[in-house]
């Protein structure tokens, strides 16, 4: 009898541990948490010659949430091109568990997501773009030393495409056929 109980007990504990590990790791991959602007800047410079589209948004910002799917669609449209999408949320760090993670789960966003928690907003905003005063949604395209900025929501994929495509035009033929996710 004692053996029986210990066996089941051990099994339960093992299963629980496995479950917790799987569960928390599925969590950890959902977004990067940047506590400082330097960390975001490091991520930007990682892109080197790729076209990097950075969108600043928040779960509480309605127009931001409305345009989010456009960024996944853009990535799909330029599948095979050297393009990266980074969705930088300005949600409060204190609401990560309660609001942010449940939102990411529900929306099934495919693009890379980050949360920038640097509170020294007045300092970091002009480092992204000098003429930006902090209203969101806002989007920048970065490639090497070139930067272009757009304030407000893109109402369609076409509008977003028109904003981003000039950066991609001089990219020579896309890398050969890649299986694109989705459609």
């Amino acid at each position: 009898m004692v053996h029986f109980f210990t066996f089941w007990f051990r099994l339960k504990v093992t299963l629980f541990v496995v479950f917790m590990v799987v569960w928390t790791s599925s969590f950890a991959q959902e977004f990067h948490l940047y506590d400082t602007m330097q960390q975001l800047e490091a991520r930007i410079s990682q892109a080197s010659d790729a076209t990097l589209v950075i969108n600043f948004w928040a779960t509480w910002c309605k127009p931001c949430v409305e345009e989010l799917p456009c960024f996944d669609d853009l990535k799909e449209q330029y599948c095979g091109y050297d393009i990266q999408i980074l969705l930088v949320s300005l949600d409060f760090k204190s609401q990560v568990e309660k609001k942010f993670i449940p939102f990411l789960r529900a929306q099934k966003i495919k693009s890379e997501v980050a949360l920038l928690a640097d509170q020294d907003v007045n300092t970091w905003i002009p480092r992204i773009y000098e003429d930006w005063d902090g209203a969101i949604p806002a989007t920048i395209v970065v490639r090497g030393n070139r930067r272009k900025f757009s304030l407000g929501k893109f109402s369609s994929l076409e509008e977003l495409d028109a904003f981003v495509s000039p950066f991609l035009l001089d990219t020579t033929t896309p890398l050969k056929p890649v299986t694109c996710r989705g459609k």
Partner: peptide
């Protein structure tokens, strides 16, 4: 001083 600062906010609709 300062006489101009930036902040996060909602765009004017």
């Amino acid at each position: 001083s300062p006489d101009f600062t930036r902040a996060v906010g909602c765009t004017v609709k």
